[in-house]
Design a binder for these strands. Sequence first.
DNA 1: GTTAGCATGTAAGGAGTTACATGATTTT
DNA 2: AAAATCATGTAACTCCTTACATGCTAAC
Lengths: 196, 196
Amino acid sequence: MTRRSEVLDLAVLGVLHDSPLHGYELRKRLGAVLGPLHSISYGSLYPRLKDLEARGLLTATEADGGPRARARIVYQLTPEGKEQLQLLLDDTGPEAWDDQVFGVRYAFFGRTRSEVRLRVLEGRRSRLEEQVAALRAALSRTRDRLDSYTEELQQHGLESAQREVRWLDELIASERGRPTVNAHQNNSVVEDEPES
Amino acid sequence: MTRRSEVLDLAVLGVLHDSPLHGYELRKRLGAVLGPLHSISYGSLYPRLKDLEARGLLTATEADGGPRARARIVYQLTPEGKEQLQLLLDDTGPEAWDDQVFGVRYAFFGRTRSEVRLRVLEGRRSRLEEQVAALRAALSRTRDRLDSYTEELQQHGLESAQREVRWLDELIASERGRPTVNAHQNNSVVEDEPES
DNA sequence: GTTAGCATGTAAGGAGTTACATGATTTT
DNA sequence: AAAATCATGTAACTCCTTACATGCTAAC
């Protein structure tokens, strides 16, 4: 994941792998992956879909759902798209432990190879440890030098980070105890409603 | 705070209010306010300082610290700068509850008027409640429809948000119990004392 | 003596948001 | 009948990062 934007590619490709969707619906599903907040805007999503199509990673087909306001355009992964998705899932560059990126990666752990899962979790953990160290250093440095509010904020940040580390420890433990099966039930949520 | 970028203005002005600094040092201090991560880059900071100077909010003076590599440029708030800082501190537009923005605002609570403090804390709280509601809705919607990893992620997000709400409740309570003095160095967070 | 840190800046590019434009359909 | 939601898209703008350029000083 050289470019930061590949996170979005991963998210889109990952969601679309479950079931083909049109842009509007896709954006809503993206919310579950990117977090209800910082979900992407249409002004950003639609051009991106065009781009992914141009790169041959997905196909766009007009689906006539009857007399619709506008023909919905359903996007679907091509074999190249699936390949690229696998590549992105296997990639464990240093950006994989970033807040944003980690969340998306974790959401797709069901399709991620077991060793990769472990590597991502451990990378994320050490990233958080760094953060804990930085906050501890900041706290001891600023003690009595900044007002109590700034200190309280850093203290709270520290505790959050520490809780996050403990959470990861649990995940890592449970990951190690998990059979190496790569099973993922492909719930085919067929996108189409009965016409009325 | 109409523009998102006014957060940076607030951070810079706020830090510079404590003591005049040159860019390099300023950036380090900014780390305590913006969080050790997502501190701004020089490529962003220096032009911004020029801009603030052009707007008359601060003055730039070459400080000769002896035979230095390069004359350090010390930035200092002008009266207009202090005014603007006060305006930003008093502003409680809806962006004031954003993750990023809230952190910066909280860091400067020592210089914020008591009522504004309360408004910001409560705004932040209701923002987080919305988030909790959104996550709960997402969880009940996706139950059994998405794989366990996505669910675990949302569950974790939910718990974090809930803890954040409790934290804010404590802050609000302690804010209410605080004398309305606007004194700068008013650091006595004496709420419920555990038996010590 | 070489690496790391101090110190300031510019130019190019990346990545996203907001505002606008358009129009049908479902809900109230 | 009005308002919200569905649905797609473009253009302008905002704001940040990266890479580059420069050169001193302290530490190893």
